[in-house]
Design a protein around this nucleic acid. Structure first.
Lengths: 348, 348
DNA sequence: CTGAAAGCGCTTACAG
DNA sequence: CTGAAAGCGCTTACAG
């Protein structure tokens, strides 16, 4: 099989070309480029000039082959297999953005890959040396891939995960204090005089983040001597469609409620539409609070009160924790504190 | 500087280990893994078994160093320097998603990088062999980087660009038929009986895509013997904020209009808010049409009529065109036809 | 169909 | 401070 060469391109400039031009050995060129202090200032200048003149760039493959380090991290984004093509969860998209920037700040490249939880993805990126470490991001049933995490640890693969933080979890996890986020939402609604709060979102064991949001909200109510009524909880995945349907189900059952705490912004936006379609006013009849702090929350009508996860900090911490591991240092799991953005969906 | 080794990890399995285990030469292992037909079926099986048993993965750096091909594409996303961290244009985020998937389908990895137009980015990814080719995506003033494109061509860098398609452009561009999109929007509004159509978006030479959308809409009006009034055009970047301000400016001037065609969904969503804040009803008083077909368009209130760019097809075509170039084949620029999604922001 | 060997372009002890 | 040399792990003519 004949592969076309990049015919239009001049033959590649190597460190040997630089060495000739600068009148030094190839080893010295390498030292200059790696920033070694063992180089005479004059020599350094000559080499740097040659590098500039010939527009030389170090070959990453040769360098990585030698050093056994890729200078690259891989982001594996796990998607709900049912997700349609254009529909990546906006929260994870925001995370992708902040992780990309964090990688750049730390001088690393980022490989991005979308995966299904069911895939046999494993540590392919790591094993083939494409990346020094993995960042795992995603939704779907946590239980489904817990065993894979243990395997990654056993193999010595460097990785960090964004998600719910448990006490004895395999590997390093950075996550949001979801319970506290739920508490913020609950207290806010209580302050507004709401008493019958519905929770929309899957609160089963496979979805520990949603579960913690639910638990936190329940705690806030308990502090006030109230409780989150079980019949006002409806399961929903994190999609607008699921939120719409969950709110419809709630209405269909004829149960009275004066507030909705949705486990995600998408669910909240879907729920608001269902409420409005049913002739209810938001927030006059039903106050709505979401979770995530996605850009959409500002644009919907009415603008959505939401528990904000700071994706910029999250991305930075994920990258820092991963690079620490790569350097052989210890990294620990930790939780970020969310904040509440109050908008018109909850206050009149 | 002492670098910690990945101490917890067993020493790396190489093709030589596989060769020993399978009782063949290392060269044969490589042949099997590359899918060479010059291997006995039996031998192939033995090698494949050893690969499985030892969980061997080809070292990408060694392979790429030898073949001079990275098996990786790089996506350079150019951002408005003023963009705040969490605020990547949702249209480009959707493109990122579809490009990631398209790369996976074609067996390539994707490196993602955010860049500022002003940066001296150039062809770093290509020169350092990190990627076989570049996908350029972004907004901001086109004129600002046209010369850089010519330079890429001169260097023989493989790249494709998403953007406005001109007749004699350097390199390969895939883009939307923006003029036709503008025509779709214009005709739609005319059909609804609207006559005084405002255009929100920067229609200067530096923004050829917006300009084409404006031109197309003007043509639709011209076909009906009408015209797009110059005093109803207000510049706006593609942000919700800019859309809000542009609509405010329009209202402040006291000019009458019964429809808004916004150059992007973000502009449209901002404009809708400004109109509603001013007590106008959408669409009863003013019909609004956006451009892009972002997910947000469905969620806002009222849901937004918008000219849809098919990001899935766009991503696939970008990757195909780039890989064709990498193989040494010719690739040509082409335009995708947009469609119109009619929603409640234009029809009652 | 298979093996021995060269070589991709670096980095880094080692010797001076 | 600098150079000569080994070697990272592959792929692919070349010879059989």
């Amino acid at each position: 099989m004949v592969q076309a060469r990049r015919s239009s391109k001049k033959t590649r400039v190597t460190s040997l070309d630089i060495a000739h031009r600068a009148g030094v050995s190839q080893a010295t060129v390498s030292r200059v480029l790696r920033g070694s202090p063992l180089v005479n200032a004059d020599t350094r200048c000559r080499v740097e000039e040659a590098v500039r003149e010939l527009n030389y760039k170090v070959d990453r493959h040769a360098s990585s082959l030698r050093t056994q380090r890729a200078g690259t991290l891989a982001l594996l984004l796990f998607e709900d297999p049912t997700a349609d093509d254009s529909h990546i969860n906006p929260f994870f998209l925001a995370m992708l953005g902040s992780i990309t920037r964090a990688c750049a700040r730390h001088g690393h490249d980022l490989l991005v890959s979308f995966q299904q939880l069911s895939d046999d993805w494993h540590a392919d990126y790591d094993d083939s040396m494409k990346a020094d470490g993995l960042i795992l991001l995603g939704y779907g049933d946590y239980l489904a891939y817990e065993s894979t995490l243990a395997q990654l640890v056993a193999q010595g693969t460097h990785f960090v995960r964004w998600g719910h933080v448990w006490p004895d979890q395999p590997g390093v996890t950075i996550g949001c204090d979801n319970a506290n986020g739920g508490r913020l939402a609950g207290r806010h609604l209580l302050q507004l005089g709401r008493r019958r709060i519905a929770f929309l979102g899957n609160a089963s064991d496979g979805f520990p983040e949603f579960q913690a949001r639910h638990r936190g909200c329940a705690q806030a109510l308990a502090e006030a001597g109230l409780s989150l009524a079980a019949e006002l909880q409806v399961n929903a995945d994190s999609t607008e469609q699921a939120g719409y349907e969950a709110a419809r189900a709630l209405l269909a059952h004829g149960r009275s409620f004066d507030a909705v705490f949705a486990a995600s912004d998408l669910i909240a936006i879907g729920a608001m539409r269902a409420l409005q379609d049913a002739g209810l006013r938001v927030p006059a009849d039903v106050a709505v609070v979401g979770f995530d702090g996605t850009p959409m929350a500002r644009f919907c009508n009415p603008p959505l009160t939401t528990v904000v996860q700071d994706t910029t900090t999250a991305g930075e911490l994920l990258v820092q924790a991963l690079l620490a591991q790569v350097r052989g240092e210890d990294a620990v799991s930790l939780m970020l504190q969310p904040t509440l953005d109050v908008r018109a969906s909850s206050i009149a």
